[in-house]
Design a protein around this nucleic acid. Structure first.
Ligand code: SF4
Ligand code: SF4
Lengths: 161, 161
DNA sequence: CCTATTATGGACCTGTGATGTCCATAATAT
DNA sequence: ATATTATGGACATCACAGGTCCATAATAGG
């Protein structure tokens, strides 16, 4: 149960792209140098970020990447979901077991919302917990972290140049 | 980023052990039959639960498992941590990169708490999110789910026998 | 004491996915 | 035309989830 390294890389790449001193189109070489990750691997990740609309990419000389939307509109949740996927963390395996029949038995008779996903009690807890996680990640954006970094005096070395 | 099936199995096994009609020592055969999981595999999971003090086990004829503490003292978080481990979901890989130096740069001078884990801004967000998840899981116990099931009329088939 | 029962732990197998490299191709600026 | 840069497919490798099998130990009941 760990986030993949790709998530780590993606977050840091986006944080770099969001740097204030933006002269458009940051190349893979620069990113790779910053994060100290191989160009080949990082480019795969950037490609995924592009496919999901988080960054734009332009090939050719002077090409590179830039954010596709303002940094305050890119939440940590966005990034995590692009890399880790959107399936839920808990997925029941044996919903046909005898155990299930006892736990998910509906009260006899009317089933109020047949269209609803009919979440069982275990899933209710696990999915509820995941929603808490998502809510928190949704509230923190690339921009908010960047702001905090500037406030704390980070990025000074770069700004002084 | 998914919980393993073992977590699923462990939760359901504990929910079975917490059933009201407890005559001590539920054998692996009964559990295996309930969850429809092989005895060999499930016994590995039960063994882990025992090592971490969630259940007690006694071998020999008429042996089996029972909860080591009241069901209201076994939270979902306990179970998840036994199976998935206690490492954090986000673990930074390259804290020596140039990127890091810019993001985690301390404000020049005094570093107020050298003993503190000196959490960087990215980790602060990711760990914060995980804490939300943990808090929710901590508030839900085997007993609380069982109560809700009984209230909803589940377990009736078993109770009528 | 003997035997059947039951949990334990080690060895082993297998498939899948994370991590990563390499290369051929396409698109773009100069 | 050429150099530059992103893209995508094909592989390679490795760790781990998921699972089986078996030898051993402990226990209850006769
Ligand atoms: S009760 Fe929920 S988690 Fe358990 S088997 Fe049924 S669907 Fe799956
Ligand atoms: S800023 Fe935090 S997450 Fe990023 S490299 Fe440094 S320690 Fe790791």
């Amino acid at each position: 149960m760990q986030y993949s390294k790709s998530t780590d890389y993606a977050l840091h790449a986006l944080l770099h792209l969001a740097r204030p001193e933006l002269r458009n189109n940051v190349g893979i070489k620069e990113l790779s140098g910053m994060l100290e990750v191989s160009e080949s691997y990082l480019s795969k990740i950037m490609s995924k970020l592009r496919q999901d609309g988080l960054v734009r990419a332009v090939p050719g000389a002077n090409g590179g990447y830039e954010l596709a939307r303002p940094a305050e509109d890119i939440s940590f949740l966005d990034v995590v979901q692009v890399i880790e996927g959107r399936q839920q963390m808990f997925e029941c395996s044996n919903s046909r077991s005898r155990q299930h029949r006892l736990l998910a038995e509906e009260e006899d008779g009317r089933e109020p919302a047949p269209s609803r996903g009919s979440e069982c009690l275990v899933e209710k807890v696990m999915n509820g917990a995941e929603q808490q996680l998502h809510q928190y990640l949704r509230e923190h954006t690339i921009q908010s972290v960047l702001d905090e970094a500037l406030q704390r005096g980070g990025f000074q070395a770069a700004k002084k140049r």
